[in-house]
């Protein structure tokens, strides 16, 4: 397996979507290739890092203004539900 081939297969390897024969080839390659070992390790770190970041929400300091505008937009929203109910009633009356 060449470095290019390893890089092309990197995600399949990390996502465990690779058959056993190829997994063995990947492991053999990274055992002797420092560069690919680094790419594999740092990509793995990236995945862990963003996964944890996914549970993060916006900072409290930004929240109150955002909520206020959301609340206003919500209170001023067009009454689509009532409108659509009305329309359905008219349609069925015809």
């Amino acid at each position: 397996m060449t470095c290019e081939e390893l890089i092309a297969h990197l995600s399949s390897y990390l996502d465990h979507e690779m058959d056993a024969a190829l997994v063995a080839e990947v492991q053999e390659h990274i055992a002797r290739c420092r560069n690919c070992r680094v790419v594999l390790d740092t990509t793995q770190r990236l995945i862990v890092l963003v996964h944890d970041e996914g549970r993060r929400v916006i900072p409290a300091s930004q929240r109150s203004a955002l909520f206020e505008r959301l609340q206003q937009a919500f209170l001023n929203r067009p009454q689509t539900l009532e409108n659509s109910n009305l329309r359905t009633a008219e349609d069925s009356a015809v």
């Binding site: 560069n35 680094v38 790419v39 390790d41 770190r45 862990v48 944890d52």
Partner: peptide, 11 residues
């Protein structure tokens, strides 16, 4: 990949 330095940051 161009940058081949290991990361010290461990998530």
């Amino acid at each position: 990949p161009q940058r081949l330095t290991p990361w010290t940051f461990d998530p």
